[in-house]
Structures are given as C-alpha cells and as structure tokens.
Design a protein around this nucleic acid. Structure first.
Lengths: 160, 160
DNA sequence: AAAGATTGATGTCTCAATCTTA
DNA sequence: TAAGATTGAGACATCAATCTTT
C-alpha cells in the first residue's frame, strides 16, 4: 500500500489539466464519430486515409507522405493500404520519377465511398465539436491550435 | 484508376480542417512527450494511469472508473493494470462495499515513479503546448475545449 | 551511405463471451 | 437481469531488419 500522498501538490499542475482536456476532447469526439464509420465498415484510420487522399492533388499521395499526414509509421501505412487495396478502395501505382516510391490513390469506388460517407460524418463533427462553439470561440480555438501545430508538426503546415 | 474528382468541393469543408487540426495537435504533442516516457520505461497509457491515480483520492480508482477516465475499455484496463501490477507500480484491492469491484491503487513505488517523472514531463508540455500560447490564447483554448468536453464526455466533468 | 517501402516478430487493444455478485 | 471484471480470439500497430533504388 502507499503513503497517502507525497509532499506538495505537484499532481494538480495546470499543464496536466490542459493536456488532459485536449486528450478528453480528441478522444471524446472520436468516440462520437467512430461508431458511425464502423457501421459503414471503415475504421477511423481507414476513413482518415480516404479523407487525406481526397484532399490531395489527383487523389493520391506517396506512401511516406501518407504516413507523415496520419499518425502511423510507414510500416503501418503499408499494411493499411494493403487492406484497403484488397477492399478495392485504393490502388498502388509506381512513382515514375523515383522508382523507390509508390503512390496510393483513390479508386472510383474509393471516391464514391468517401463522398457517400462524408455528409453524415460532417454532421457529427458539427454536433459534437464545431457547432458547440460560437464563431469567435471557434476561431480562437483554431488559431491557438494552429500555433501549437506549427511547432509540433512543422512538416504539416501546408494546408489548414 | 479514378476520375480526378467528383462534383463540388465537398472535401475542403472547414469542419474537416478543424478536426484535422485537433488530431495533428493531439498526436503531435504526444509524439513530443512519448519518447521521454518510453526512455523511462513507460508507455503513454501507463503514464496516464499513474497520473489519473495520483489525482484521485487515496491514489486509487475502481477499474471501471479508470477505464472511463482513460480512453481504454474495461478489458484494456484489466490488462494494463495486470502489467503495471507485475511491475510493482500498482496494487489491486477488493472493494469492501461492492464485492464485484476492485480498486487499482498506486504503490509506494508508483508514487515515487510518477513524482520522479513528472517534472521533466511538465517541461515538455510547457515547451510543446501551453508555453506556445499567450495567457489569453491559452484561456480561450481551454474554455473552448471545456465546452466541447462537457458534451462529448459528460461523465468526466468533475475536475478540470 | 541514405531514403522509400516492405516484412517478421512481437505487444497491446478490442469485441464477444463468461463468471461472479448485486 | 444487469453491472464489474476478466478471458479467449482476432485485428492492428510498432520496432528492427531487409531489399531496392538513389
């Protein structure tokens, strides 16, 4: 068993609270949107791949870029793209300018799938996230998030 | 292969951007703090368990409450507590008032471990998150996050 | 020698089923 | 019947090593 608590209240630090809040919000919103994606047969990770590709020129991205834009390793992306390719949503094509590289690109079925799922997904994000805030609150939130993002993920500062 | 893009620009919706930003920030901050925890032998999930318990009365929590406060299922918590108990950081004790329940509580070693790791962890959160914002920006961020949290995780609205 | 992608080995998580107690 | 916790089976992610191309 443990002594009730050591020394001063180190454990109530506001930085911990801030981090906990960020975690609760992110995981909480995912918990609200994930089940709907699952009902349509996609995991959160798979849906995010579809989404990232749909926002990329030509609906395709190099494997390593896809890894950088999601929170997966290149190994994880290889396997995820494997499964989605088997499912007919994606197609690998060789990169002509660098024969080490491969593109993962949306198939017609992939485009149709994301287009079909997106409206209901957006509605859930509206109900459980952005729609809960006033326009001023939302823009303050986004501007703060961008400042943090630019530091912790400098390579992703393209769009957004 | 795919047609370049169907119809109007559904895929550039600002709600998607907002969600992407939240994801990049959360995962980005974790990517900055995780390696330091790993160097001390703990996963992010294990560290969070230590932290949640350290902030709970008596340094302990029911298994199901611990599951609710983290983003794991009760099954996941059972296995995580198993490992941490083997490692000497936690101890299960029976709940006297309800014999179905168990507490997971910090051992002395658990208290010492979290106390030893916390200062460096707080410093990383400072450098990669809260310290990047002005006081006004930070309080606007936190107040917006709280509003969202209260909706997507109503059961967690105790502290914070 | 380094970068892009993949594979083998391994660990951790979830879902569904189960056991015990309320 | 339901709630708290656990377990077996299966899915998915990572790390380190490997192969190919630069």
């Amino acid at each position: 068993m443990a002594t009730p608590r050591p020394g001063p209240d180190l454990f109530a630090d506001p930085r911990i609270t801030a981090m906990g809040l960020l975690s609760e919000v992110y995981n909480g919103v995912l918990a609200r949107t994930g089940p709907q994606l699952a009902a349509d047969g996609l995991s959160v990770a798979e849906f995010e791949v579809l989404l990232r590709l749909s926002r990329s020129p030509g609906g395709r991205l190099r494997m390593s870029d896809l890894a950088a834009q999601t929170s997966l390793t290149t190994s994880g992306i290889t396997r995820l793209v494997d499964r989605m390719e088997r499912g007919g949503l994606l197609l690998r094509t060789a990169c002509p300018s660098d024969r080490r590289g491969f593109f993962a690109g949306l198939t017609d079925a992939g485009w149709e799938r994301i287009a079909a799922m997106l409206p209901a997904h957006l509605e859930l994000i509206e109900q459980n996230f952005v729609g809960l805030l006033t326009p001023d609150e939302l823009s303050a939130l986004l501007s703060a998030l961008r400042k943090v993002r630019d530091v912790v993920r400098p390579e992703a500062t393209a769009g957004g």
